[in-house]
Design a protein around this nucleic acid. Structure first.
Lengths: 141, 141
DNA sequence: TGTAATTCCTCTAGTCACTAGAGGTTCAAG
DNA sequence: CTTGAACCTCTAGTGACTAGAGGAATTACA
């Protein structure tokens, strides 16, 4: 049986966050001591590790909840787990592409103004002038 | 003079978001018609474009506000603008590295389970087992 | 000029995933 | 048995919006 602090130390999830997950129903309500403190078994530890891992991978809590509900699932239900993982992967790749475009632009903006300060600063100018973008990010939902 | 809807169409910033920016002090309070509707001049349009651009680049509103306050700045004040751009660039690069690591792992997780469904699904398994991570993301603040 | 559709107004509350703080109780070590 | 760390509940705040209610103004067209 572990205290909430021990769970926190073992998983890297902060104490208030563990309570938050309990509130949200992602973690089952644990046993309590006579003095009303939470005591967790190893099952809870695993479950929390699962949540942590999913969060690290960028999954929203709703997806994690869905995956959690598939524990021990067989056959077609497993497809849902795949679907979540695949969807997440697609998202991730898009985010990377997007960020790399922005990196190019930020680099340009920053470099344009190194050295002399005589002219209007490129940073301020570039931010104001959307047309000057190299990678066009003008059309975004 | 432009209505709020026109501003929205021209910048791609949603109408409620424009009002939100006004509330936050990022956009000055515009003139109003006799019927209390907002009317913007081209200055506001430019300013909103600046904000939009900054947001697209991932800047938080506080940074954008700082940049906005540097409009027309000279000499050393410009360094602050650079500093913001550079800091943002560093952040951005870290995020990209992080995401690429996760991409590797998600790809692995997803691929491990394609085909047969006889075994315990790799997605569920992998999420539960942090130790199996290739790119270690165990230590995160 | 009338009317109908569209756009606009303010306001409150909700989203996501936490985080911070107040004010108080329980536990473990010495 | 005392002290200090860890725990408890609860409320409110964060960032950057988004949604919806309920109503007023504007615009287009007949």
């Amino acid at each position: 049986m572990h205290s909430i602090g021990e769970l926190s130390r073992r998983t890297g999830v902060k104490v208030p966050t563990i309570r938050f997950y309990e509130d949200k129903g992602l973690l089952p309500k644990p046993h309590r001591t006579a003095g009303n403190q939470r005591r967790y078994d190893d099952g809870a530890l695993n479950r929390l590790q699962f949540i942590r891992h999913g969060r690290d991978l960028g999954l929203p809590l709703t997806d994690i909840e869905a995956l959690l509900s598939l524990e021990g699932a067989q056959g077609p239900d497993l497809d849902r787990a795949h679907e979540i993982a695949e969807r997440q992967l697609i998202d991730l790749r898009q985010r990377i592409v997007q960020l790399r475009r922005l990196e190019v632009e930020l680099t340009r903006i920053s470099a344009d103004c190194d050295g002399t300060h005589d002219h209007v600063c490129a940073v301020l100018h570039a931010f104001g002038n959307h047309n000057a973008c190299l990678g066009s990010h003008a059309a975004k939902s």
